[in-house]
């Protein structure tokens, strides 16, 4: 039976990579490899997954130095010289082994006012939004984010600036800025225009490069820069 060498991060912020020998199959994802280790070699291994089909965004890890969604990453695509190194996502605190604490990531969604603010009540008629409208199409381009944290882990600015909201939170804010039903834009634009908001982005585009859904948070952030600048020049930005 063919095997591969798998090196997994064990420990918390301080720890080390530990090697395991795992059967190499013709059709196998990186998540299958991690699950094999947990089920057959070391049941103390901690990692996180749920749907296994690329919808839930919970299984992201660092695979051979790149953040990836492990359930949709085939071993054949990433294996190098019969070896794979798998670690926790960067830029997030490690809880244990391959599981990171996503709290800072989701806290920043809240800071960026990533929650929908309704402008109507349940007694009002449903607002009709034309699918071909410019705002709806802009929202569409950003809306499919699955919150996997890969863009956040790949972002240089997040690494340098702990207060930076990050690509995912700003991408979410951009989809809501373009949501015609939403009434939260004054507070949202003020939040993303403050220190650590969209203007901290250096447009390195690592978020776009690594996003498993091929979204473009850099473009969303550029949109926020334009929109906040217009609001600033018109004196519409809340203090």
């Amino acid at each position: 039976m063919k095997t591969m060498e798998v090196s997994l991060w064990r420990g918390r912020a301080q720890g080390r990579y530990q090697n395991y020998e795992v059967p190499l199959r013709e059709n196998q994802t990186v998540l299958d490899v991690v699950t094999y280790v947990a089920r057959h070699l070391d049941p103390t291994l901690s990692y996180r997954f749920s749907c296994r089909v690329g919808m839930c965004g919970s299984c992201a890890m660092t695979v051979n130095g790149r953040p990836r969604w492990t359930c949709r990453t085939h071993v054949a695509k990433v294996i190098r010289r019969g070896r794979i190194e798998i670690g926790p996502l960067e830029n997030l605190p490690v809880i244990k082994d391959l599981a990171t604490d996503m709290q800072p990531f989701f806290d920043k969604w809240q800071q960026a006012k990533g929650a929908f603010v309704p402008s109507r009540t349940r007694d009002d008629p449903i607002e009709e939004i034309a699918p071909s409208g410019a705002a709806r199409m802009a929202a569409d381009a950003a809306i499919e984010c699955i919150n996997c944290g890969i863009c956040y882990a790949a972002c240089d600015t997040v690494r340098w600036n702990a207060g930076y909201l990050g690509p995912a939170a700003l991408n979410r804010a951009w989809s809501l800025v373009n949501d015609e039903r939403d009434a939260g834009n004054p507070a949202r634009l003020a939040a993303v225009a403050a220190s650590g908001g969209c203007h901290a982005c250096h447009s390195h585009q690592s978020c776009q490069e690594h996003c498993p859904l091929a979204l473009n948070p850099t473009a969303s952030i550029a949109g926020l820069k334009r929109r906040t600048m217009q609001a600033y020049l018109r004196g519409e930005l809340e203090e």
Partner: peptide, 8 residues
Amino acid sequence: MNVRLYFW
């Protein structure tokens, strides 16, 4: 960097 510094 905030919007004011970005503008200037």
